[in-house]
Design a binder for these strands. Structure first.
Length: 885
RNA sequence: GGGCGGUUAGCUCAGCCGGUUAGAGCAUCUGCUUUACACGCAGGAGGUCAUAGGUUCGAAUCCUAUACCGCCCACCA
């Protein structure tokens, strides 16, 4: 292909067709599906399955980007790489959404019944699942779609039942009446984690409970929830509290209700809070429940499932709980039993899904006895078999695990994994993986399955092994488990990560993954959490339409560090788009010259200094980026590739090759241009897969390198060639850059018209020979005619600027622009700076302790600096003197 | 009540296992339609690295307090 026949490429990168084209290409060739190679250790990530409750958001985009980077990177390193995708049925969250859809039709789930409701959810899931998978594909995820799983698929569902039955048989799952969190709107129990506490300003109501048989005597209790007095069955005081010593064992009259309740002594009561006497409502408070157990108090539940007062509430029955609270306070006041109202702010629990205030309530539920599961999960992290990154989350994890409490796993919902327990009229309870046909005790066939479903996180906890085939002993499970990395946002460390570790170890005897990598949350430009209600949600699809997928992937990582939250707005997306475009245009430049007959192999060509420089820089960046990726420092790795490609390859190397390419000088820079670009594209491919594939394929075509792989994604990730490190070339290039910058700077300061060439003289001492071949390059880059390039300064007009640099002196005769006073002032200022520097260094080097304690290398460096400062000063003084002649 | 994170240029953030003159993107100012790129090029200005102590030859970096900001955990009603 000759230069003239190259198709004209548009000036700006257009991502959309490129994205579609290459994703299809990769998918069709099966590059996402790994081969199990027994000789190699696989790299495995199980994708955190997104909820099927709607669209992907930026958090998913970040997760997908980071996981895709790791996946593509390891795949390019030749490891059998599995990234397994899936979706989560999202129990309560999904049910809430479909209930809302029904509500729009004026229906409730109870009106249409369980079966019809579930059919509705499945129908809706069919749509959203495809939607989510397509959005993921759009992000370029290289996950293995042939192994895609849904939490309610047959396999994972059987895993759920198996895990349940095993835990039950070991006595680690039990059914019992305990205080749970009840959401009146969702009408279900919640785990402790699903309750979000919020400080709410409220009151501490002080209520008088009359002492039976002692007219005019009261015990005053303080409460934040006066309505719960309907379920009081005692008043408790601390046994050591002298104020109440005499009243323990006496009876009180419970106002409004009219029942008689005892005063009991219990250590759980704090002497210094409220009045020191606490009303005990065993059905609606965890502490009270415990006190109730110790003192054998009755448990009176005062609430209906919907949050209204129940039948035990007497005349308040049917009232909404907060209305009842007001009414009860009013009645107490009327009775003269309200001592006082003290403003009091306290934490109130809200349902994570619907924000409704939850009620602690005694209820018959299923629980996981968690301590025996937590112990091995704690040691796995403590002994380093599982490493959490960033490390600080280890402490958070351990602290939670060491104080963990039993996990309520039953939900009074319809959508989810039905609890595998059946009840027979004879009283027998059957816990089984497969639906039992008959009762093993009485032989009856009238078995009723428990109506409840499991907490959605129960199935999530099994995800790493259930997706790979557990409980069966499958090839995948044997080869890919334990997995390598669990990558997710830090906000589900307890919900999900901790439970996977517990359940994984419990079910398989092995840890589920070796690393936990936790990334931060993405906030909007003002730092606020994105939410639909705030209307500040950025839709990844819209952003990809506007800027391209690579730009979005760039944006979510740009300027981030592990575990820290980040903000995202147009600025970063523009930076990503601009970078993709810059790369595209750099490649467009190379492609103009890259032709098949000129694509020599690098090792056979002669190299110039700038060639050696860029190759040296590439090798260093390669080493650095690889090290950063090992440590999950993706933001910093991306920054280094960006700076190298833009600030060194484009700004200097490409500029330096222009003269050589246009003049046809030998050696041609093309092999190096092609090599550096090609290697850089591979380095960057995990981050920006589409633009790199597009450009890589163009390069492959243009250079006719048939030996290259079919796709950049299955090419080898570059290994830095340290033999290319070249300190000498880097030093000379630094000098060259310094000269060009200094001249450009002077031109700008003196307002020299951009088209005007100026004349300069360069005195480079021992580096003269090094710079000699670059006269033409300097002339072109600095717009200056180099008149002299010599070892020693020659006599010139005194009406000249003198730029005293590290590697050279540049003299610029500027007769018409020269201003003696200004130039004198400038030199004097520079001399003053050099003297100040000299004084500082001399003081430092005169410090005995510094010389004795600082490492040799630091001392040597300081000495070099001092020599340089003194040399510079001398040269500046010389110039100043000549100005006066 | 515990615990964690943050406080660095106008904005958003890197840097933080100590060692030149503290970096980037954006914004801003000056000048450029230079055939890879105006999604660009060249140049400039802008920071007592929250405050106070301490450790050290040397601190943005380590330690201790303090102040704000944010987050997580927690059954004192």
């Amino acid at each position: 292909m000759s230069e003239s026949s190259m198709p004209e490429l548009p000036k700006a990168y257009e991502p959309h067709d490129v994205e579609r084209k290459w994703y299809k290409y990769w998918l069709e060739r099966g590059y996402f599906t790994p081969h199990r190679d027994p000789a190699k250790v696989p790299f495995v990530i199980i994708q955190p399955p997104p909820n099927i409750t709607g669209d992907l958001h930026l958090g998913h985009a970040l997760t997908a980007t980071i996981e895709d980077i790791m996946t593509r990177w390891h795949r390019m390193r030749g490891e059998p790489t599995l990234w397994l995708p899936g979706e989560d049925h999202a129990g309560i969250a999904a049910q809430v959404v479909v209930e809302r859809l029904l509500a729009k039709e004026g229906l409730t789930r109870h009106q249409i019944g369980r079966e019809a409701f579930l059919a509705r959810v499945w129908q809706w899931v069919g749509e959203t699942r495809d939607n989510i998978a397509n959005q993921h594909r759009r992000l370029g995820v290289s996950c293995d779609w042939t192994r895609e799983r849904f939490t309610l698929d047959a396999g994972p569902s059987r895993a759920v039942r198996t895990a349940f039955v095993r835990l039950y048989n070991k006595g680690l799952i039990y059914r019992g009446e305990r205080i749970i969190n009840w959401c009146p709107r969702c009408a279900t129990a919640l785990s402790d984690l699903e309750v979000e506490h919020q400080n709410v300003p409220s009151n501490l109501w002080h209520i008088k409970y009359p002492v039976v048989g002692e007219d005019g005597y009261y015990v005053i209790v303080a409460t934040t929830r006066p309505e719960t007095m309907l379920g009081d069955t005692a008043v408790a005081v601390n046994p050591s509290d002298e104020r109440y010593g005499g009243i323990i064992g006496k009876s009180l009259m419970l106002p409004i209700v009219g029942s008689v309740i005892p005063v009991v002594a219990d250590e759980a009561v704090a002497v210094d809070f409220g009045t020191g006497a606490v009303k005990v409502t065993p059905a609606h408070d965890p502490t009270d429940f415990e006190i109730g157990l110790r003192h054998k108090l009755p448990i009176i539940n005062i609430l209906n499932p919907d949050g209204t007062i129940g039948e035990s509430g007497g005349k308040y029955q049917g009232q909404e709980r907060f209305a009842a609270r007001q009414a009860i306070v009013a009645e107490l006041e009327q009775m003269g039993l309200l001592e006082r109202i003290e403003p009091h702010t306290h934490a109130v629990g809200h349902c994570q899904r619907c924000r409704t205030v939850v009620e602690p309530m005694a209820s018959l539920q299923w629980f996981v006895k968690i301590a025996p599961l937590a112990a091995p999960a704690i040691s796995a992290v403590k002994d380093g078999r599982i490493r959490i990154v960033p490390e600080r989350f280890t402490k958070v994890y351990l602290n939670w695990m060491e104080n963990i409490r039993d996990w309520c796993i039953s939900r009074q919902l319809w959508w989810g994994h039905r609890i595998p327990v059946w009840y027979c009229a004879c009283g027998e309870m059957v816990v089984a993986v497969d639906d039992p046909k008959i009762c093993p005790r009485c032989g009856g066939s009238e078995l009723c399955q428990d109506p409840d479903v499991l907490d959605t996180w129960f199935s999530s906890g099994l995800w790493p092994h259930s997706t790979l085939g557990w409980p069966d002993d499958t090839e995948d499970l044997r080869y890919f488990y334990p997995t390598t990395i669990m990558e997710t946002a830090y906000d589900i460390l307890f919900f999900w990560v901790a439970r996977m570790i517990m359940m994984g170890i419990e079910d398989t005897g092995e840890i589920p993954f070796r690393f936990v990598y936790l990334h931060g949350l993405i906030r909007d430009e003002r730092g606020e959490k994105m939410s639909k209600t705030k209307g500040n949600v950025l839709d990844p699809l819209v952003l990809m339409d506007r800027y391209g997928t690579d730009a979005l992937r760039f944006a979510v990582l740009w300027g981030t560090s592990p575990g820290n939250d980040s903000k995202l707005g147009d600025t970063k997306l523009e930076a990503g788009r601009n970078f993709a475009n810059k790369l595209y245009n750099a490649a467009r430049f190379v492609l103009r010259y890259a032709t098949q007959d000129r694509g020599q192999r690098l090792e056979k060509v002669a190299l110039t200094l700038e060639d050696r420089w860029i190759l040296s820089r590439l090798a260093r960046v390669n080493t650095s980026v690889t090290a950063l990726m090992e440590e999950f420092e993706f933001g910093e790795a991306l920054r280094q590739m960006h700076d190298f490609l833009w600030g060194e390859f484009c700004d200097w190397y490409i500029e330096l090759t222009k003269g050589r390419l246009q003049s046809g000088a030998e050696p041609s820079p093309l092999p190096v241009l092609v090599h550096v670009l090609e290697q850089s594209l591979r380095l960057l491919h995990p981050y920006m897969p589409f633009v790199t594939e597009e450009l890589w394929q163009s390069l492959k075509t243009a250079t006719g390198q048939q030996s290259m792989a079919d796709s950049i994604m299955i090419s080898h990730y570059p290994v830095a060639d340290e033999s290319l490190h070249d300190d000498d070339a880097e030093r000379v290039m630094d000098g060259l850059v310094e000269i060009v910058r200094a001249v450009r700077n002077t031109r700008a300061e003196y307002d020299v018209a951009s088209e005007r060439m100026i004349e300069i003289q360069i005195y480079a001492g021992v580096m003269t020979d090094s710079f000699q071949p670059y006269v033409a390059a300097i002339e072109s880059l600095a717009k200056a005619k180099v008149a002299v390039l010599a070892t020693h300064r020659r006599e010139t007009s005194s009406r000249a600027l003198a730029l005293v640099l590290k590697a050279a002196e540049v003299v610029i005769p500027m007769a018409s622009l020269f201003d003696l006073a200004a130039e004198t002032a400038r030199l004097e200022k520079e001399i003053a700076e050099a003297m100040w520097e000299q004084a500082r260094l001399e003081a430092h080097l005169g410090d005995e302790t510094f010389l004795a304690r600082a490492p040799e290398a630091v001392v040597v460096k300081e000495k070099e600096r001092l020599a340089m400062a003194m040399d510079k000063q001398a040269r500046l003084k010389e110039h100043l003197q000549r100005l006066g002649e």
